[in-house]
Computed example of a mutant assay.
Amino acid sequence: MDFDSFLDRAWTDHAEQAAAVAERLIDPGLALLHQEDQVLPLAALALHVHGQHLGRWAEGLAFQQRLAALPLVAPEGATAQSLQRFAAVLRLAGGLADERTGLGCSDAARLTAMAAAALGVHDIGRARALLEEATAAVQANALPDADPAVRALAIAGNNLAGALEDLPVRSEAERALMVLAAQTGRVFWARAGSWLETERAEYRLAKTWLKAGDAAQAHHHARSCLDIVQANGNVALEHYFGLEVLGLAQRAAGDEAAFAQTVVQMGVTFDALDEGDKGWCRPTLAAFEP
């Protein structure tokens, strides 16, 4: 197995097999590293798995430090700096240390946002506090759209909302944070991304409101998602999933006639998909059809 195949498989498996993937990061993961540009993709996966999925802060920190010690990594290079940031995120999220003192606003806000995402479902109170702190810092200091902290908040909002959506049930505090996180993702993807990321943030918001039990809000954001897609060339794959979340909102609202029409539209859009996309998109349509 080569590194790229290993990484793709690990990302595919990590949500349902997080502990097993954490073991595979070491063996065979480390042995498959042959060049420096492979280190950060592995480190990012490790941060996500050890943090958001497992909450194993010390274990994650040890792995990041092991990567930093590899001969492949130039001690003062960009990869080493990113690994130091990942380690600081794990320390902050895990309550091991707060290394933000002395950092500039951008670096501190970026680290804070990443720690909020890493905390995920493990400590709702701290995750919310960190997300709000990072948001306030970016806004108070008028950081430009291209600043890495803006993108970090967009990613953190999306990932945190997704993690909370995956819970089988949610407390009121978890529901509130899920909505806040999805809204944060939408605000900051509009600044840090293209129409594509903004549209997908609307999709995330629609899914979030469905999990929150508000079909009307879900319908509103599904429509916004589709409006953005239509304004930007009506890309078939994006249109397809916009219709999916619209159908879910219609079904949740009990609007069977509108739902049936949306399913027909999904079928038409499915036929326009690239052949490579049809295989993994087919189950979504099949779940809607009688």
Rank of each mutant, 00 (worst) to 15 (best):
H220A: 02
F3V: 03
H14A: 13
T12L: 08
A20M: 04
R204I: 15
L90R: 10
Q265F: 01
L103K: 12
A137T: 08
N159H: 15
H48G: 11
A176T: 14
D214E: 06
E133K: 14
A173K: 14
R126Y: 08
R151W: 14
D277V: 09
E256K: 11
Q250L: 11
T198H: 15
W209G: 00
L205R: 07
L210T: 10
T269K: 12
E23W: 00
V49K: 01
F270E: 05
L54K: 02
D13W: 15
M114S: 12
T284M: 12
A69T: 06
V187Y: 12
L25H: 01
L273M: 12
L47F: 03
L164I: 14
A31P: 06
Q35P: 03
V121L: 07
A140H: 09
W189F: 14
G125T: 11
A113E: 07
D37V: 13
L72K: 02
V187I: 14
I26Q: 02
Y240I: 03
R9A: 03
E244I: 09
E36G: 08
F259Q: 07
R66M: 04
V39M: 00
S5N: 05
Q35D: 10
A212K: 11
A44Q: 14
D123R: 13
A117D: 06
L226F: 12
L119K: 14
E289S: 15
T101L: 14
C225V: 02
R186M: 06
E16A: 09
N158S: 10
Q38Y: 07
T184Q: 06
A19K: 05
V263C: 06
G95I: 05
A136L: 13
V150Y: 01
A201V: 13
V264F: 12
R175G: 07
E202F: 09
R175D: 13
E197F: 11
A257V: 14
E256V: 13
E289F: 03
P144I: 02
A93F: 02
L237H: 05
G95S: 09
F6N: 00
P75L: 03
I228S: 05
A192F: 01
A116D: 04
L25P: 00
A190T: 02
A31Y: 01
G267V: 03
L243G: 04
D255I: 09
P290D: 15
G185Y: 07
D227N: 13
D98L: 07
W189T: 13
K211N: 12
G185W: 02
E165F: 09
